[in-house]
């Protein structure tokens, strides 16, 4: 592709502009799925618990006695201002939920991602380089298993293992109650708060709680990364430039590292970015498994409370994150991939 730098900035601009219609389709979908169907959010949340008049008052306060189209426009307006509404059941702004619980989800996913990359990339590279060897078969089997095994089952099995082998190691929650109580909340990310407090026991307590959930979610992701890296290394090894490098007499390990692997990584970065969606889904399940106080746990809680506005707000937030990261990755990829740059 021989295109000037003008096409790169155009590509980025178009990609960013496309976010708006895409988000609009998603928001419309979420709104109408949750709201158009007969029955209303208030009676779903409080039905049978309050009198009909009290329900009407709440409906009026929430503004859901107005025509649907008005509510729809208002919802779009709210989201444009990064306001995701207030929960019905306990009247909290969804943004507060994101602030209070987003940190736990963030540290969980980042930890898992780091683990997955550290484990996945070297293993995938090994499997790709020594393909069809026993090591390759074993690594691929591991990849298949992480795909077939439900993440929550893997989590439960790990809990059982830890409970048997290391009694006393935390298997539930993000920290001991005492730590949560003593650490000053500043950043709403417990791990950072613990670090800022400078309290050694608090830091190690929070870190210990992170190990098992991050490991579980990381296993799921590492399976994906292994497959990707392996395929891309194999493809890159077939490239002419690898042949050329070999012909120049460069040692095989340098060929693999400098020529094949680096090129393979470009493709991997894109697809890893697409894993954000899978990571979020995995995080919701992991949080439920380990009683992790993140956004997934909140989502489940409000689902069980049949709180339409909370579910709508949280789902909108998740969708926003996914769409924005996918754009971000596309832009990054446009910047780092030499085939686009030149």
């Amino acid at each position: 592709m021989s295109s000037g730098s003008g096409s790169l900035s155009r590509y980025i601009a178009i990609r960013i502009l496309l976010v708006v219609p895409m988000m609009w389709v998603l928001l419309t979908l979420v709104f109408f799925l949750l709201r158009v169907a007969p029955g209303d959010p208030v009676s779903a949340a409080f039905g049978g618990k309050l009198s009909e008049e009290a329900l009407d008052v709440r409906r009026h306060n929430l503004g859901i006695d107005r025509p649907l189209i008005v509510q729809y426009l208002e919802y779009l307006g709210q989201v444009a201002r990064f306001d995701f509404g207030k929960t019905i059941s306990d009247n909290r702004p969804v943004l507060d939920l994101v602030r209070d619980n987003g940190g736990a989800t963030l540290t969980l996913t980042i930890g898992a991602f780091v683990f997955a990359v550290i484990v996945g990339i070297p293993l995938g590279r090994l499997a790709g380089r020594y393909r069809d060897s026993w090591g390759d078969i074993f690594i691929r089997l591991f990849g298949v298993l992480t795909y077939a095994a439900p993440i929550f089952w893997v989590g439960i099995m790990l809990v059982l293992l830890v409970v048997k082998l290391f009694p006393g190691w935390p298997t539930s929650g993000i920290a001991s109650p005492i730590t949560v109580f003593t650490v000053q909340p500043k950043t709403h990310v417990l791990l950072l708060d613990a670090i800022f407090s400078g309290d050694g026991t608090a830091i190690s307590d929070v870190l210990k709680h992170h190990v098992l959930p991050c490991f579980t979610l990381g296993l799921l992701l590492s399976g994906v990364i292994i497959r990707l890296v392996r395929v891309n290394v194999i493809q890159a090894m077939k490239g002419d430039y690898v042949e050329a490098a070999r012909a120049r007499g460069i040692a095989e390990r340098h060929v693999v590292r400098r020529h094949a692997f680096r090129n393979a990584l470009v493709a991997v970065v894109t697809v890893i970015g697409l894993q954000v969606a899978a990571t979020l889904a995995g995080a919701i399940l992991t949080e439920r498994t380990f009683n992790w106080p993140g956004l997934g746990t909140q989502l489940v809680k409000y689902i069980l409370a049949r709180d339409y506005i909370a579910v709508q707000g949280l789902v909108t937030f998740f969708a926003l994150i996914v769409v924005l990261t996918s754009v971000f990755i596309d832009v990054i990829n446009g910047l780092i991939d030499p085939r686009v740059r030149y």
Partner: peptide
């Protein structure tokens, strides 16, 4: 639709 995490 495809961009939304399937589980969500």
């Amino acid at each position: 639709i495809y961009t939304v995490p399937y589980l969500l």
